[in-house]
Nucleic acid binder design. Structure first.
Length: 513
RNA sequence: GGCCCGUUCGUCUAGGGGUUAGGACACCAGAUUUUCAUUCUGGUAACAGGGGUUCGAUUCCCCUACGGGCUACCA
């Protein structure tokens, strides 16, 4: 019997989604798409203490920006609504109680202080793993140690309690991971995890099993940090009687900091010199602002392509993939096992590739938008020309303005080194003639402009290499840039003449005597 | 500390018992050019170490080292 593939992305709204979370969502999406299945988003907000306003909205915006489409979610709705665990609160207790009745879970009344004391005691006794487990639960205050009527009384009097899973003392738990193969864990290394908290909310462990089962999830694709608790989840499926429809697991290798020193985390913010968030984030508590890939100028297609290759590869030499191509090529088997260091260089390269693949007219819009902000008028035609000469030299859309402002604004300062080396009387004399004859050009094109310059150069007995740097300096103030003749064509004869005049005045001091 | 996972160029990775260990980013050099960039060509650079198994291990097994994750009434 083939079940329809159903995967879920289940973030908790405790802040902005970070890049590792985006990758997890992406892999889920690619897998669902590849298999012709469905992807849903479930908000895991069972810890009300960690609620961060705006976080949920941020998650949706991020996925939308990336082009990750959801079939079911709190905002898209779906047959398994609600998709927010806080709204599903009433349903979890039944399952917890079932576990209690079946002898797989129990009430525990220990206070935080008592738990601390227990751990201290075990630590002092040099116990390797101080935990609430098959041995220690016998010394604690729970429904396994207390007389039945006392338990009843405590419950009825409203004493705070939690429900803990009764993990067997000696049992091998096997777990098949799609990426790592069989993982064997002994039950003695798992503690009696809290299933229901004293505030009536389930913990992640219970909630995710109940919801994944109810929502018909077939594959759980999540970060490697969940691998240690996966055996516990297997136990829960078993005790709840759902083992036959238990989803398959795939635990993704983590995204590491560039130095390999620990996993990339939200707290890294901008400390590493690159964004860790897809979109800019304003912390509602501290007011702190963290940069995002979108605002930094990364195109979503480039960002997605880059992210997909962090830990996965198609096994071919193709590097550029659209979302559809990624989905087509995707398979869980080709996800790597080891942690992936983050390298922003590759992201920049991808961005350049995607930018250059765009038609000039589209790139021109980036420039036009920036110009509008600076209240500078510019024709569509001119913007397209500039985009065309700049596209091979930009990494981000902002660069069209940032690195090409001289098309609109005359230079106010000039590169000193070039001025010292290249500005001289011979060059100035050429420019003077050039400036004066510019209006004579019939058809004002880069080719014709060059022909004129060459002709003047010949009259002066000079070669083009002797003046180009100086001319570029006069017109742009810079030492480098796109083809100068194209620049002259674009800024026009009047502006060119004006800039030559200005430079001749301002650079007088650099002329060697 | 305990448990779990991992380890191929600087980085992302392909590969797999016998290969000149392949690609991409980055880096370096050359070519082109009016500069820088682009582009093209070429180059440097890797199987963590030690034991097995085997005719032969980078590939399979074990150990060590190193790295990472988990170890909450957080997810």
């Amino acid at each position: 019997m083939e079940r329809e593939v159903r995967v879920r992305f289940a973030p908790s709204p405790t802040g902005p989604l970070h890049i590792g979370g985006v990758r997890t969502a992406l892999y889920n999406y690619l897998f669902a798409k590849k298999m012709g299945g469905k992807m849903l988003l479930r908000i895991e907000d069972t810890d009300q203490n960690r609620f961060v306003p705006g976080a949920e909205d941020y998650i949706f915006q991020s996925l939308e920006w990336c082009g990750i489409k959801l079939d079911e979610s709190p905002v898209h709705g779906g047959p398994h609504a609600p998709y927010r665990q806080s709204e599903r609160k009433p349903m979890y207790m039944d399952y917890a109680l079932k576990l209690v009745n079946d002898g797989h879970a129990y009430y525990a009344f220990d206070t935080a202080e008592e738990l601390d004391a227990m751990r201290e005691r075990l630590k002092a006794a040099k116990v390797a793993t101080p935990q609430y487990n098959a041995i220690t639960r016998n010394t604690m205050r729970n429904s396994l140690t207390l007389p039945e009527d006392e338990v009843k009384e405590l419950l009825e009097s409203g004493t705070p309690y939690v429900i803990r899973l009764k993990v067997p003392r000696k049992e091998e738990i096997r777990l098949k991971d799609l990426i790592r193969g069989w993982v064997l864990v002994h039950s003695s290394s798992i503690d009696d995890k809290v299933l229901m908290k004293s505030d009536g909310m389930p913990t992640y462990h219970l909630a995710n099993i109940v919801d994944d089962h109810l929502m018909d999830i077939t594959h759980v694709i999540r970060g490697e940090e969940w691998l240690p608790s996966a055996p516990l989840h297997v136990l829960l499926y078993r005790y709840l009687g759902w083992e036959s429809t238990m989803p398959e697991f795939a635990h993704l290798p983590l995204l590491l900091k560039p130095d390999g020193n620990g996993k990339l985390s939200k707290r890294d913010g901008d400390k590493l010199g690159f964004p860790v968030f897809p979109l800019e984030w304003h912390d509602p508590f501290t007011g702190e602002k963290s940069s995002g890939y979108r605002e930094s100028g990364y195109l979503p297609e480039a960002f997605v392509n880059f992210l997909a290759f962090l830990g996965w590869n198609p096994g071919t030499h193709q590097e550029i993939f659209s979302m559809d191509e990624l989905a087509e090529a995707f398979s869980i088997e080709r996800i790597g096992k080891s942690g992936t260091r983050f390298d922003i260089n590759k992201a920049r390269w991808y961005n350049e590739q995607y930018l250059r693949a765009k038609p000039d007219a589209e790139l021109a819009q980036y420039l036009l938008a920036a110009l509008a902000e600076h209240n500078i008028a510019c024709s569509e035609e001119k913007a397209v020309k500039i985009a065309s000469v700049m596209k091979e030299r930009v990494t981000f859309p902002q660069d069209f303005w940032r690195e090409a402002a001289y098309f609109f604004v005359a230079p106010e300062t000039y590169n000193e080194k070039v001025a010292e080396k290249k500005w001289n009387n011979a060059a100035v004399a050429v420019f003077e003639d050039f400036k004066n004859q510019l209006p004579n050009i019939q058809e004002y094109t880069a080719d014709n402009i060059k022909a004129l310059l060459l002709q003047i150069l010949e009259q002066h007995n000079m070669k083009i290499g002797q003046v180009m740097q100086a001319l570029r300096l006069a017109l742009t103030g810079l030492e480098a840039g796109p083809d100068l003749m194209a620049i002259i064509e674009i800024i026009g004869p009047d502006e060119t003449a004006k800039r030559i005049e200005t430079a001749t005045e301002k650079l007088q001091a650099y002329i060697p005597s």
